[in-house]
Amino acid sequence: MELKSGTTLPSSTTLPPASKGSAVGKVLAVLEYLAASRRSVSVGEISQALQISRSQAHRVVAMMEREEMLTRHPLTNRIMVGTRVARLACRLLAGSPIKPLWHPVLDSLVKDIGATCNFVVYDGSIGTYFDRIEANWPESLRLKFGSKVPLHCTAGGKLYLANLGEQERHAILDGISLTRLTPRTITNRTQLSEALKIIAQEQIGTDEEEFIEGMVAVAVPVFSSADILLGTLAVHSQRSAIDIGNLRGFIPRLNEASASLARIFEREPEIIG
């Protein structure tokens, strides 16, 4: 999950002190601090927030990095949630008590539009299918929960990139390959950057047979009330069934569903408490 470009957050977040004698307690406290901060942090900030020494904080962070629970920001070297924790969070939330609340939102989209619907969450250069409902087509592409999606050639992935700050976007693009998956995949960095400028203005991501030949898609962002990008909501179809122009006609319906998802996710503590 990322901040919308230009959004700022409080510089510090405090939590109860970590258990002095429990390594597990310190690990959980670091993760809680990162979740509350919603930004990359320094070892010094972790030390202060958890009320432990800097040497203790360094040891805990180093151990969590080895286990892929934490990673470093490519530009600032500050600490971020790692891929292992991000995957675990998706799996846990997918089985949480609020799934019956968000799943009907996607199901309703599929019934209204007649196209496959997905919600993708992002962490650094990784996009992961958080939930997906297939349209009733015998030839529909079936990508399961937890599948990874490329950023440079999917509607949601490009929308995510377009909402990053310029430095972070460049850092991510420096670290991924613009692999050609179809004849229409954009593999030129300059051309992709120009496309992302348009997407940033419209807040609509598109995939015109760039990921899979014969498939088109549109995506809208799901923002929290604090302008944090929670993920992207997309519908895709075989071009022979619904072309890109007709899919764009469903953008108001997608935005309505996006707002519903944002309300559900922001209410989660209240619902499960």
Rank of each mutant, 00 (worst) to 15 (best):
A135E: 15
N136P: 00
N136M: 07
P138M: 00
P138Q: 06
P138S: 09
S140V: 15
L141D: 04
K144Y: 04
F145I: 14
V149C: 03
L151P: 10
C153L: 08
C153G: 05
A155W: 05
G156Y: 02
G157Y: 10
G157T: 11
K158W: 11
L159P: 03
L159T: 04
Y160T: 03
Y160Q: 02
L161W: 07
A162W: 02
A162V: 08
L164F: 04
L164M: 03
L164T: 01
L164P: 06
Q167D: 15
E168P: 00
H170I: 09
H170K: 14
H170Q: 14
A171R: 06
I172D: 05
I172K: 05
L173F: 10
L173S: 09
D174T: 05
G175N: 15
S177D: 13
S177N: 08
S177P: 00
S177C: 05
S177E: 15
L181M: 14
T182I: 05
T182M: 09
P183M: 06
P183E: 09
N188P: 00
R189M: 10
R189L: 14
R189H: 14
T190W: 07
T190A: 12
Q191G: 01
Q191S: 13
S193I: 10
S193W: 02
S193E: 15
A195T: 10
A195M: 06
L196K: 06
L196Q: 10
K197I: 03
I198D: 11
I198F: 06
I199R: 01
I199N: 03
I199D: 01
Q203G: 01
I204S: 03
I204W: 08
G205M: 09
G205Y: 09
T206S: 12
T206A: 12
D207T: 05
E208Y: 13
E208V: 13
E209K: 02
E209C: 12
E210Y: 08
F211S: 13
I212P: 00
I212N: 07
I212H: 12
E213L: 14
E213W: 07
G214D: 07
A217C: 10
A217M: 03
A219M: 02
V220G: 10
V220I: 08
P221W: 07
V222D: 04
V222T: 10
F223E: 02
S224G: 14
S224A: 12
S225Y: 01
A226S: 14
A226C: 03
D227C: 08
I228K: 09
L229R: 06
L229I: 09
L230F: 12
L230C: 02
G231D: 06
T232I: 08
A234R: 01
A234V: 02
V235T: 05
H236R: 08
Q238I: 01
R239S: 14
I242L: 15
G245C: 04
G249A: 11
F250D: 03
F250K: 08
I251L: 13
I251H: 03
I251A: 06
P252Q: 07
R253T: 12
R253P: 00
R253D: 02
N255P: 00
E256R: 12
